[in-house]
Nucleic acid binder design. Structure first.
Length: 429
RNA sequence: GGAAAGGUGGCCGAGUGGUUUAAGGCGACGGUCUUGAAAACCGUUGUGGGUCUUGUGCUCACCGUGAGUUCGAAUCUCACCCUUUCCGCCA
């Protein structure tokens, strides 16, 4: 949520931000007008309330019955006026809030301006793609041959784009989760186990609602919404709180499944486990002061990169442009891992600084010093990492000519083997 | 799911329609005293909005949430949420 004072005083900044994001600006003019109406109605209503408050107190002390009745009648009329004004005020406020809630965050001036992903900038590529002495296979071939992946049974259970991980396939994912959480804990993030279903308000605060309702799953009868990312419950962990400045920055990490209703383009990403309605992710999250958020953002990027480095994967770092960053973000780095089998750079992480945008929606503040007014914290989130795509990168990069898959060093103690050779070995496990 | 009791400031806790402008206490902060500290004493104390004469300013709202009754609601009515205890069910 943007500060209404900012919108009022510097509407041009907001207008330019919308244009840079390739979004239209007509809501902005409506907001400015509603804001004027709101303050006018509020002023009138409050003046009448002030009058009623003082007169009502006098009524309580009045002895003269006639005089008393006259004042009561007068205040009854004032009350009626207040009722009318308040109804008007509520209407205006509802409209104003609805429109303000649709305004995205203002992009950081450091990011490239551009209407679409074409304008994203690749900052660096880390590592050299491995040279294979054979044609590397895509993970769906490797996985099914080794008995790690079962697409048919996934479809049987839940339909297209669902899959089952078998045996060491499931175990590889669990090993990745356990190792990543341990790594992040070592990096200073506290591990949290969170609800996977949350209330509607929680999704509003992190910025998914109202705009992206179509991408969410929810219970038809109860106010339960399936989380699309751990960022949602993590943002709201401290919702409505005034944090102690000495406790900042707060670092959290969490493993959750993620549920996303996505309109999948027919024919794209159909094969394999790259994109589905359900996937697992380990997430990092920070609450910090405005002064440190840029620095914390860079550190979080390094923490996400450490996961890729630990796994020995080749990746590149992308700085997203104004047209491609998320609704709540001011600046976002994407990390893309190289997958030689399917020949793609796979987005495995997105590391964003949301500034005070989510903190306003979730009302998360801190007191800079004793006695000072509370101010909004900054919030940051980053994947560390998304599991299916990390699985793809590991499987495809560590495959050998005979179709077996070597296990990255760091995962061996979690999975209990150095190599996945095939179904026969699976049975012996 | 059933029954009962509850929900008031950072915390405890009083408050059943009008000196409540939410008592009192604890804590915290500031001051006096002290070589220093403690104690004692004095003072201060939440959040958000509006407004201008930017002030120790004025004003509105906030006692779980939302409606309602009333000239006036923490207080009365209704609905809902949450907590605690007991019963039932359950991995």
């Amino acid at each position: 949520m943007l500060d209404i004072n900012l919108i009022r005083i510097q509407p041009d900044i907001v207008r330019q931000a919308l244009l840079n994001r390739n979004e239209d600006t007509h809501n902005l003019d409506a907001i400015l007008q509603l804001d004027v109406q709101r303050r006018e109605a509020l002023k009138q209503s409050e003046q009448l309330r002030a009058l009623r408050n003082t007169v009502s107190k006098e009524i309580g002390k009045m002895k003269d019955a006639t005089q008393r009745e006259a004042k009561i009648a007068e205040m009854r009329r004032v009350g009626d006026q207040i009722t009318v004004l308040d109804a008007e005020l509520r209407k205006v406020e509802t409209q104003l809030d609805a429109l303000t809630a649709t305004l995205p965050n203002i992009p950081d001036p450091r990011i490239p301006v551009g209407p679409s992903e074409e304008s994203n900038v690749i900052l660096r590529t880390v590592g050299e793609p491995r040279q294979f002495g054979f044609q590397p296979k895509p993970h769906w071939e490797l996985g099914t041959a080794l008995g790690l992946l079962d697409f048919e049974r996934g479809v049987k259970l839940s339909g297209t784009r669902f899959y089952v991980l078998n045996g060491l396939g499931a175990r590889l994912q669990r090993a990745l989760i356990a190792w990543m959480l341990d790594l992040h804990t070592f990096q200073g993030y506290r591990e949290e186990y969170l609800p996977f279903m949350v209330k509607q308000q929680i999704l509003f605060a992190s910025g998914q609602l109202p705009k992206f309702k179509d991408n969410l799953y929810h219970d038809a009868e109860e106010d339960f919404w399936m989380v699309p990312t751990a960022e949602v419950p993590l943002t709201n962990l401290h919702g409505g709180e005034i944090l102690k400045v000495d406790d900042l920055p707060l670092h959290y990490c969490a493993y959750t499944p993620c549920f996303r209703r996505e309109k999948m383009k027919a024919g794209s990403d159909v094969r394999g486990i790259k994109r589905g309605h359900q996937f697992d992710k380990v997430e990092m999250y920070k609450f910090c002061t405005p002064e440190t958020s840029n620095e914390e953002h860079e550190k979080m990027l390094a923490d996400a990169e450490a996961v890729l480095k630990g796994l020995g994967l080749v990746y590149r770092v992308k700085l997203l442009c104004t047209g491609d960053i998320g609704f709540s973000a001011r600046i976002t780095y994407d990390l893309e891992a190289w997958a030689p089998g399917c020949g793609e750079w796979l987005e495995v992480s997105s590391v964003s600084n949301c500034g005070d945008f989510q903190a306003r929606r979730a009302n998360i503040r801190y007191r800079p010093e004793a006695g000072a007014k509370p101010e909004y914290v900054h919030t940051l989130n980053g994947s560390g990492l998304a599991l299916p795509r990390t699985m793809i990168a590991v499987m495809e990069n560590y495959q050998r000519a005979d179709g077996s898959i070597e296990i990255p060093e760091v995962l061996r103690q979690f999975i209990g083997t150095d190599v996945i050779v095939g179904k026969d070995e699976l049975r012996r496990q």
